[in-house]
């Protein structure tokens, strides 16, 4: 830089291109960065301002029953039996479905539609790791959505005088159920969203599959159990993640059911759980294949 240049004040000098010789993160570091940026993107962080409105509005709405229950408990002094953790998400299934349907396209349709996927695939991770990390991001985001009200219930209940010893096992069952629910719902929604590239279609498709599936399953179970076909009634749970989680919680975790025909024995519950997990793995394989084909 010559003396003449530096003499002219108020000029931003071009310091030239600087090479980067510092540390670089490993593969797991990249995966972690992608995982958490995905979770944040679901809640609208790192995106436009209005992208935050819907997820937080839904989160607020799903908290309302929990807050009311805790409020009633502490004001009127009702017993802690009112706190039904494991049934909470089945009860607010409509909001969970809306949240997942609206936000899964953020992780799955957006990349494919805007073409960002070609940038991701040209980076170290590769298609398989990318698809699975995206899926994990959605699972974590759904968990955050379904666990927050449970946490409010639990902490609020304890503050209102419920006993920790009694509540803990019930909350643990609900937690396990929430994890299972998040994984199953995430698989369904990610498949729908990665195949229908339009956001509107993806939302409609996810709502269709999850919500209508829930209604159909409940109806089917009702009919089957009144007709005496209990086997069919049990297995119908596979059609809807909500019914399945309920059934598994009832049979394995001694929770109270929200649906007509929960699995009645531990064996049926385990079998249902195993089948559901197998279906989930199948869904993830399909998802990975979808992304691998996009790289070509």
């Amino acid at each position: 830089m010559s003396a003449q240049d530096s003499a002219s004040a108020g000029v931003i000098h071009d310091i030239g291109y600087r090479r980067y010789a510092g540390e670089r993160t490993s593969r797991s570091g990249i995966t972690r960065a992608l995982l958490f940026s995905g979770v944040l993107a679901v809640f609208g962080f790192g995106r436009s301002g209005k992208a935050k409105v819907l997820p937080f509005a839904l989160l607020g709405m799903t908290l309302v029953p929990a807050v009311i229950q805790v409020g009633i408990m502490s004001l009127i002094g009702l017993s802690a039996d009112l706190l039904n953790y494991s049934a909470y998400n089945a009860g607010s299934s409509f909001l969970v479905v809306l949240f997942v349907a609206a936000q899964a396209p953020v992780l799955f349709s957006r990349d494919l539609r805007s073409g960002v996927i070609s940038l991701y695939l040209a980076r170290p991770l590769g298609a398989t790791a990318f698809a699975l990390t995206r899926w994990a991001s959605l699972v974590l985001a759904i968990l955050a959505f379904v666990l927050t009200p449970l946490l409010v219930l639990f902490i609020g209940g304890l503050a209102a005088g419920a006993s920790l010893g009694e509540e803990l096992p019930r909350v643990a069952v609900a937690l396990a159920g929430a994890v299972l629910l998040a994984m199953l719902v995430a698989t369904v929604a990610s498949l729908v969203a990665s195949w229908t590239l339009r956001r509107g279609l993806a939302i409609a498709g996810s709502i269709m599959v999850l919500l209508v599936g829930l209604g159909v399953t409940a109806g089917l179970q009702e009919v089957a159990s009144t007709e005496g076909a209990t086997g069919l009634a049990h297995w119908a749970a596979l059609l809807s993640p909500f019914v399945l989680v309920d059934s598994v919680q009832v049979s394995l975790g001694d929770a109270t059911s929200q649906f007509p025909a929960p699995a009645d024995t531990v064996a049926t519950g385990l079998l249902l759980l195993g089948t559901a997990l197998a279906l989930m793995v199948l869904g993830m394989v399909l998802l990975v294949r979808r992304y691998r084909s996009k790289g070509a």
């Binding site: 980067y20 670089r24 993160t25 490993s26 990249i30």
Partner: peptide, 13 residues
């Protein structure tokens, strides 16, 4: 920034 991280840069760099 995000794309830099996807290529293996730590957050601050």
């Amino acid at each position: 920034v995000h794309m830099g991280r996807m290529s293996g840069l730590p957050p601050a760099p």
